[in-house]
Design a binder for these strands. Structure first.
Length: 262
DNA sequence: ATGGTCGGTCCCCGA
């Protein structure tokens, strides 16, 4: 069994004690991190390495940044989502082969553009990034591998994934175009690991810092683990660990995880 | 009725 988690930590430096505590407690084999908010060289590799994890980070100054932590060896395959124009890239994608014991598998840590406000170049950037992800997913699925594409997708897939759907109607995270691009990934053959095992709504992975969203459980589910058919065949469990969101100095996101029988 | 969040950075921007 292999446990794979995704967590938008909103600054790895500010969150390091929380991340270390959760790694010790939850014992994931692979963790996909987003919003590390530091340059690659400043990622706290030593502290995390001391817990038995290898690290592959792709950072930039101030914003974004993704990483993969793994107890097995990591072979990085992409540091940028393929299909770009080769221009300046925000640090939003890292993909690697995980050299795990029974069989290797592939993962990607994804920080999809937020896209707000709608009607701006930020929203069109989100949609074009999603189209690029669709094209690359098609290539990945042709490989017939166990693949887990996890991260902060910045998409509320269905109304049941928000406590208050009406509050999000003008938000990029719930736009029909955002949702249809997300569904396009599912139509290619990816499985939303959490939804596959928890068809009911009311489970969230993000609660805004503002307005007491956490104590009121006014959340949304935007962090997802999307599985290739070969991975979905091996899906045993999936869950959202609300614990870290209730801690002191919490990220506004909490870890989402799945277990695969490999 | 009012004011109510974080993090990084350079006092405002992004979420």
């Amino acid at each position: 069994m292999v446990k794979i988690a995704t967590w938008n930590v909103n600054s790895i430096k500010a969150r390091l004690p929380n991340v270390l505590a959760w790694l010790k407690e939850a014992q994931p084999d692979v963790v996909l991190l987003q919003e590390i908010k530091c340059v690659t060289e400043q990622f706290p590799e030593m502290e995390i390495g001391d817990l038995g994890y290898n690290v592959a980070a792709v950072g930039q100054k101030t914003y974004n940044g993704v990483a993969i932590l793994s107890k097995s060896r990591i072979e990085v395959e992409h540091r940028v989502l393929p299909g770009g124009d080769g221009g300046e890239e925000q640090a939003r994608y890292v993909e690697a082969l995980i050299d795990a014991k029974p069989a290797p598998f592939r993962v990607a840590s994804i920080y999809l553009p937020n896209g707000n406000p709608i009607g701006t170049e930020k929203f069109s950037y989100k949609l074009s990034w999603m189209e690029r992800l669709r094209a690359h997913t098609q290539t990945l699925l042709a490989g017939d591998e166990v693949v887990v594409l996890g991260g902060d997708y910045n998409v509320i897939p269905w109304d049941i994934d928000a406590r208050n759907p009406a509050a999000w109607v003008n938000d990029a995270l719930a736009q029909p175009e955002s949702r249809s691009h997300f569904r396009g990934l599912l139509y290619l053959g990816l499985t939303d690991a959490f939804r596959a095992l928890h068809p009911e709504g009311g489970h969230y992975s993000f609660w805004d810092y503002q307005g007491g969203a956490w104590p009121r459980d006014d959340g949304i589910r935007i962090d997802h683990l999307l599985l290739s058919p070969q991975a979905a065949d091996r899906l045993a469990e999936a869950g959202i660990d609300r614990g870290p969101r209730g801690k002191e100095k919490a990220s506004d996101h909490t870890p989402v995880w799945c277990e695969l029988k490999l």
